[in-house]
């Protein structure tokens, strides 16, 4: 069945509206993530290392490292991703240090945030901007 452009646009518009309806109820924003992790407590700047490249070689696989001496948990958020949650590390009694490295996906240039829950129950925060480019003839 051949659709006219008008009909197609109309159908797409309606579908888009329908798709949008349930979304706000499910999407957790960066602020939601932070509020859930910290319970609304203040976050100090510093006491937490976050290492990520200034320019990502490729946004699909970006190496990062986080570390906070004495921390019980570290949460990492990608503020510009469709869903900001990235990873949460919980360190146990046999952790040799409160550091960890991993590789993450970044959808575009954005701030990556790390928040640590320190030994005394307070929170620390660090942030870094990672540039994500669209390549040339990457094939």
């Amino acid at each position: 069945m051949d659709l006219t452009r008008r009909e197609t646009l109309g159908a797409c518009g309606a579908a888009a509206l329908l798709a949008m309806l349930p979304a706000p109820a499910l999407a957790r924003t960066t602020d939601d993530w932070i509020a859930e992790f910290t319970g609304g407590a203040d976050m100090a700047e510093g006491g937490l290392d976050l290492t990520a490249p200034e320019i990502a070689e490729n946004g699909n696989t970006v190496p990062i490292e986080v570390g906070a001496p004495g921390a019980s948990e570290i949460l990492v958020l990608a503020t510009g991703n469709p869903t900001p949650g990235v990873v949460k590390f919980t360190f146990g009694p046999l952790a040799g240090s409160q550091r960890a490295s991993t590789r993450i996906r970044l959808a575009g240039t954005q701030d990556v945030i790390a928040i640590a829950k320190l030994a005394d129950g307070s929170f620390a925060r660090a942030s870094t901007t990672v540039k994500v480019t669209i390549g040339g003839c990457g094939g």
Partner: peptide, 14 residues
């Protein structure tokens, strides 16, 4: 053109 004459240069961000 790319790999012999322009290696080391950037083609857009590559």
């Amino acid at each position: 053109n790319c790999h012999e004459q322009n290696f080391g240069n950037y083609i857009r961000a590559d």
